[in-house]
Design a protein around this nucleic acid. Structure first.
Lengths: 114, 114
DNA sequence: CAGAATCCCTCGTGATACTG
DNA sequence: CAGTATCACGAGGGATTCTG
């Protein structure tokens, strides 16, 4: 069993939760979050109803839950305008914009290798 | 609603299955696969029993299932030596080695932003 | 040693209806 | 318009036992 000690390890803690990689997979994993990020990324600012119509098959339950988690994790921002009727807009945070290029690499890799 | 048309889109198909990004998330997602890849990456060649002992909490069911899926997706290779007792070794495939640097970027991003 | 088989259960996901 | 509230289901995950 040869060791790879001169390389940076993929995961320091085999247990899981403290691994940055696992944290990313957990926060953007699930059935809809990537798609939600996709739609917001393309339009910069998107309203709730637009998201629901853009993502085929998603329900209110899942869209609302996913958005709340993405907001709690600091990946999207929610802005509410108390007009009548109410208007709510979502956009990516700055840190999410630095994540996008990495996701694009992953996407290319997936297209070439899966 | 402003368009981001001069940027490469994160996901071309909102529906999901054909998006390279979603394919990657699906194949390395789940509870254990990242950890399995981590252990193989660090040791280059790992036996089944070593994997089970290295990954705290994993059961035979999950380890065997995950390895089978990773092998079916072409991410790990299985080599069986018909000695007595049987010896089985796992290693990363070449294409997985090109995935590792991207995962390392993701890991760094997660450490800095989650 | 390296799994397979079986049974079991949690929880992510979903359908439907309702509200400020 | 932008969500909540319930209830329900099925798949992913897990404990235990068994085998070539």
């Amino acid at each position: 069993m040869k060791k790879n000690e001169n390389r940076e390890p993929l995961c320091d803690d085999i247990a899981g939760k403290d691994c940055g990689l696992k944290r990313v997979i957990d926060t953007v994993g699930g059935k809809w979050k990537i798609m939600i990020l996709c739609v917001i990324d393309r339009n910069e600012i998107v309203r709730y109803g637009e998201l629901r119509r853009s993502i085929h098959g998603i329900t209110n339950t899942m869209l609302a839950n996913s958005l709340k988690e993405l907001e709690a994790d600091g990946l999207v921002e929610r802005k509410q305008y108390d007009e009548m009727p109410v208007r709510v807009e979502y956009n990516l945070t700055e840190k999410t914009k630095t994540l996008i290029p990495i996701l694009l690499e992953l996407k290319k890799w997936g297209e070439g290798n899966l």
